[in-house]
Simulated scan of single mutants.
Amino acid sequence: MNRSIIGALSAAVVAVGVLTPAASAAPAPQAACPDAGPGLLRCLTTYTPGLAHTLVDDPVGWGADDLASAYRLPAGPGPDTVVGISIAFDAPNLEADLATYRAQYGLPPCTTANGCFRKVNQQGAAAPLPTANFGWALESTLDVSMVSAACPSCRIVVVEGNSPGFADLAETEDTAVRLGAKVVSNSYGAREGGAPLAYASHYRHPGVTVVASSGDSGFTAASYPAVLASTVAVGGTSLASDPDSPRGWAESAWTYGGSGCSAYIAKPAWQHDTHCGKRTVADVSAVAEDLAIHSTDAGGWLPVSGTSASAPFVAGLYGRSGRAGVAQPADLYARASQFADIVTGNNDPAASGKKCGGDYLCVAGPGYDAPTGVGVPNGLTGF
């Protein structure tokens, strides 16, 4: 992984595809999808505009090989579980960008021709597809890349909604299940409330594991659909190589990873944390910072961040475990000892954890905490 270029950007700006001496600060990361209005969900990816044009064919960020090492994934590819991606708008270059990613990391081809890849509209038809949207396309590219890194043998069905509205994305969920998905990943969110919760039943399907991003705004109001008791809520971490540790990697709560205490959803019987009387987010976590993807629309390889990376990665692990559809959120707590506990970091950096009084709701520590849940994957046994 080439991280030196990212560091160099702190002293440079992007201009005409090259790095020039900085007279001002480097371009800052920004949300791929703008803040959603009423009745809309927002994709949870951040990227640095223009950065891909300085990298072209040089991946920067954690790749599939890094993730396999960090999370002790088995050498065998696993089963051909169908993993569904619920998403808004079309990503015209999605299959080509996925092919570039998989080739870069030595993963087998996943194409329409070999039956591994399928992209449909929210009704399940190959055409017509929705209009294209850059931010959501970047999100789609991240999603299929992370599923591929977690489960190279899984088949992928991408269901594209006409809009990021609650109703359209609820229909994509149902369609993914109808098309055979045993696990469905949702890398988007909105503040929980009466309007989105009216669609909760669409994220609850017998025989299907539903996974969702916990959010990218740190400790705040719980994010829908992650807050649903039927959903595996996935938080985010920051990953670093650490040759001196037994694991070979160091990990801490990601600064922006979402956590929260629901104002609406009753406490599930399988959650026993004491400072939130209702549903607590998150359940489990994985790396959400500096993931390498290839985006034709963005200009090539670039690093992206967001719990929209950790959620599809965990969805892929469910697919690879052979327990997709059987596994539900409660199982994570019953198998907590099978995960690597994350004990450092917080998602309330401005107040250094003081927003929630230094509590486990925003500060990582031994055992369950809201930013990282029961911990991060340590092989597949926890799933």
Rank of each mutant, 00 (worst) to 15 (best):
residue 49 P to L: 08
residue 50 G to Y: 12
residue 53 H to Y: 01
residue 55 L to C: 14
residue 55 L to K: 13
residue 58 D to T: 13
residue 59 P to A: 08
residue 63 G to I: 11
residue 65 D to C: 09
residue 66 D to T: 15
residue 68 A to E: 08
residue 68 A to M: 02
residue 69 S to H: 08
residue 70 A to G: 05
residue 70 A to L: 10
residue 71 Y to K: 12
residue 71 Y to L: 12
residue 73 L to A: 11
residue 73 L to R: 09
residue 74 P to T: 11
residue 74 P to D: 11
residue 75 A to Y: 02
residue 75 A to R: 13
residue 79 P to W: 04
residue 79 P to K: 02
residue 81 T to N: 11
residue 82 V to D: 03
residue 82 V to L: 14
residue 84 G to M: 07
residue 84 G to A: 13
residue 85 I to W: 02
residue 87 I to F: 05
residue 88 A to E: 03
residue 89 F to N: 15
residue 90 D to Y: 14
residue 92 P to W: 12
residue 93 N to Y: 14
residue 93 N to E: 15
residue 93 N to M: 12
residue 94 L to Q: 02
residue 96 A to S: 14
residue 96 A to Q: 15
residue 96 A to N: 08
residue 97 D to I: 07
residue 97 D to H: 12
residue 98 L to G: 10
residue 100 T to M: 09
residue 100 T to S: 14
residue 101 Y to R: 06
residue 102 R to V: 13
residue 104 Q to R: 14
residue 105 Y to Q: 03
residue 106 G to Q: 06
residue 106 G to K: 01
residue 106 G to C: 10
residue 107 L to W: 05
residue 109 P to R: 11
residue 110 C to F: 07
residue 110 C to W: 07
residue 113 A to H: 01
residue 114 N to A: 04
residue 114 N to V: 05
residue 115 G to H: 11
residue 116 C to H: 00
residue 117 F to H: 12
residue 117 F to D: 13
residue 118 R to N: 02
residue 118 R to Q: 15
residue 119 K to L: 09
residue 122 Q to S: 10
residue 122 Q to P: 00
residue 125 A to K: 12
residue 126 A to W: 02
residue 128 P to T: 00
residue 130 P to C: 11
residue 130 P to I: 05
residue 130 P to E: 07
residue 131 T to Q: 14
residue 131 T to C: 04
residue 135 G to A: 01
residue 136 W to G: 00
residue 136 W to D: 08
residue 137 A to T: 14
residue 137 A to R: 08
residue 137 A to C: 11
residue 137 A to M: 06
residue 138 L to V: 05
residue 139 E to H: 06
residue 140 S to D: 00
residue 141 T to P: 00
residue 141 T to C: 06
residue 142 L to A: 03
residue 143 D to K: 07
residue 145 S to Y: 00
residue 146 M to E: 15
residue 146 M to G: 00
residue 147 V to M: 04
residue 147 V to H: 06
residue 148 S to L: 02
residue 149 A to C: 13
residue 149 A to L: 03
residue 150 A to T: 07
residue 152 P to M: 05
residue 152 P to K: 01
residue 153 S to R: 07
residue 154 C to Y: 06
residue 154 C to N: 04
residue 154 C to G: 04
residue 155 R to I: 02
residue 156 I to A: 04
residue 156 I to N: 01
residue 157 V to F: 10
residue 159 V to C: 10
residue 162 N to L: 13
residue 162 N to W: 07
residue 163 S to H: 12
residue 164 P to D: 15
residue 165 G to E: 07
residue 165 G to Q: 06
residue 165 G to L: 04
residue 166 F to R: 03
residue 169 L to C: 09
residue 171 E to T: 08
residue 171 E to N: 11
residue 172 T to W: 04
residue 173 E to R: 08
residue 173 E to F: 00
residue 173 E to S: 14
residue 175 T to P: 10
residue 175 T to K: 10
residue 175 T to Y: 00
residue 176 A to H: 03
residue 176 A to R: 07
residue 178 R to V: 07
residue 179 L to T: 04
residue 179 L to F: 12
residue 179 L to Q: 12
residue 179 L to I: 07
residue 180 G to R: 03
residue 182 K to F: 05
residue 184 V to Q: 03
residue 184 V to W: 07
residue 188 Y to S: 05
